[in-house]
């Protein structure tokens, strides 16, 4: 009887877990292996905790470009003052495995010919 109760409780807990899509944006497990380049104009920029992000507009579609936490992002030279809305930016990195998701994680961001290596060890030829 007691075991049964515990079992029922465990089952209730399992059933309560909402079936959420696998949206794992920490690390690189959610991205494609190969590098991907995206050119767009800045919609908004956030350099802060828990991680920095850049929203780029590409042919009318807004992409979310993830950078690193603020420490490494600022260490690369990239700050919130580096870009302003309307600037053209080239983001090199890995895009989401889900082709419908307009999201990538950048290893390098290039603004007006200047490159910011957000994840230096992941930039080829570095």
């Amino acid at each position: 009887m007691r075991r049964l109760r515990i079992l029922l409780l465990a089952m209730a807990l399992g059933a309560a877990m909402p079936v959420l899509p696998a949206l794992a944006h920490h690390g690189w497990a959610w991205t494609e292996e190969e590098l991907f380049e995206l050119t767009g104009t800045v919609k908004s920029v956030f350099v802060g905790n828990p991680h920095a992000t850049l929203d780029l507009e590409v042919e009318g579609v807004v992409w979310r470009v993830e950078l690193a936490p603020p420490g490494p992002t600022v260490a690369s030279g990239f700050t919130e003052e580096t870009v302003k809305p309307g600037d053209e930016v080239v983001a090199l990195g890995n895009r989401s495995l889900d082709p419908n998701e307009k999201r990538m994680k950048a290893v390098r961001v290039t603004v007006g010919g200047k490159a910011y290596d957000i994840y230096p060890t992941r930039v080829p030829a570095n």
Binding site: L9, A16, M17, L20, L23, H25, H26, P50
Partner: peptide, 22 residues
């Protein structure tokens, strides 16, 4: 109590997912 034991861990789960969707 049965409702509570399901609700609070669900809040925890949703809270953890927040960081992955942002």
């Amino acid at each position: 109590a049965g409702v509570s034991i399901v609700l609070w861990p669900t809040v925890l789960l949703v809270g953890r997912f927040l960081g992955f969707v942002l």
